[in-house]
Amino acid sequence: MALVQLIHIAHARSGDKGDTSNIGLIARESKFYPILVREVTAERVKAHFEELCHGTVERYEIPNLEALNFLLNESLDGGGTMSLRSDPQGKTYSTALLRMEVQVPDDLL
């Protein structure tokens, strides 16, 4: 096992709906999708974003796209027009997630 930053095995895009940020996390290769499913749980994402996300985190699996979708509730300071943040729509949260480190079997790397 090796500790690997998600950016090496996944890519991502984030968007917003009101005060909720969504992050789509996509495996770079098929062999990495089961790693994402196993390692990147809603609980871990909530802990990872503790400074930014004040609500719950929901996770959805999209196996056909080899992707996970995360909804981070209460994470945009009220959302779009209310927000005082320089990133009111959480567009940079995609790469914030890619900072996470996960365990990957050596033979997959």
Binding site: A12, K17, N22, I26, R28, I62, A67, N69
Partner: peptide, 16 residues
Amino acid sequence: VAGVKEQLVYEMGNPR
């Protein structure tokens, strides 16, 4: 395909 996937997950809620 990878680029299209990025757009598909954009502003997504429950994918089903």
